[in-house]
């Protein structure tokens, strides 16, 4: 099966590793992975900042880029949610049909893995906790797939944090408009996470993780954050065996 990887702009700017890891995992599942070079941004940042026109420009471009694929896999839960929820709301003209159609064939990464993985052999010992990123949880309604996928990794223990469903305070430009508020929200999340037995915080959104690890670094709290694709790639056969070794 041929799939296109939708990497999100965070991968281009500051977090390339999750996208590269996702390619390895998908290939290990027997997929042929294309990473269309023409992709830029799904338009979420512009849309949520109130700029519909620039956003719909980027959304149409997204549609042209991914329109020909049978399946698109999104590395970011939030960007995938934008494609699903906002494209039909924002793109009203006929020319937009391509994008809306492609959106229907777009999977969030963990959901795709959970549905298509028959033979993946995953092993990595360690203790993690999951952060439900807001749009993946509420807009995509996806809570089960990441837990399902993490549950398939032999040796991995998943510890639920009490506020796993609570926003980390990133919120796109919200993080820039209200930095103190955004950081205070991160602090509550960091406190919840550090109270579990997990050594690593795992999520499906690099932007949440950059915000949280940036905040933790500033406060000198030892919080180690990683994208679920990175974790799964490290759990593939021939990997280091332990979470500690893989992400020291």
């Amino acid at each position: 099966m041929r799939v296109a990887l939708f990497t999100s702009c965070a991968a281009d700017l500051a977090a390339p590793r999750p996208a590269l890891a996702a390619v390895r995992v998908l290939e290990a599942m027997g997929m042929t992975v294309d990473v269309p070079g023409a992709q830029t941004c799904c338009g979420q940042v512009a849309l949520n900042s109130g700029h519909r026109e620039p956003a719909s420009e980027l959304m149409r471009r997204w549609g042209r880029t991914f329109g020909e694929y049978d399946a698109v896999v999104g590395v970011s839960g939030s960007c995938t949610a934008t494609v699903h929820h906002q494209f039909p709301r924002v793109l009203e003209d006929r020319a937009a049909r391509l994008a809306v159609d492609a959106a229907r064939r777009t999977w969030e990464f963990t959901r795709f893995v959970a549905h298509h993985d028959a033979a993946l052999d995953l092993a990595l010992s360690g203790d993690v906790t999951w952060h439900d990123s807001c749009h993946m949880l509420r807009s995509l309604g996806e809570k089960a797939a990441p837990r399902d996928v993490l549950g398939r990794v032999r040796g991995l223990r998943v510890h639920e944090a009490p506020g796993s469903e609570v926003c980390c305070g990133f919120g796109g430009t919200f993080a820039l408009k209200y930095p103190e508020l955004s950081c205070a929200m991160a602090d509550r999340k960091i406190t919840d996470v550090t109270r579990t037995d997990a050594t690593h915080l795992v999520s499906s959104d690099s932007t949440c993780l950059l915000h949280l690890s940036g905040r933790a670094a500033r406060r000198r709290v030892p919080l180690r954050a990683l994208h679920v694709a990175e974790l799964l790639a490290a759990a593939l056969p021939g990997g280091p065996g332990t979470l500690e070794e893989a992400f020291a």
Binding site: T7, A11, D12, L13, A14, A15, P16, A19, L20, V23, V35, G37, A175, L176, K177, P179, E180, S182, C183, A186, L210, H211, S213, G214, R215, A217, R218
Partner: peptide, 27 residues
């Protein structure tokens, strides 16, 4: 933009901007 991010957070490492594309092309 960075100034507001840096109010309370370390900046992400942007030195890797574009690295993904190069790695994919090489690959």
């Amino acid at each position: 933009v960075a100034r507001r991010w840096a109010r309370g957070r370390e900046l992400p490492d942007l030195r890797g901007a574009g690295r993904l594309r190069r790695a994919l092309r090489r690959r």
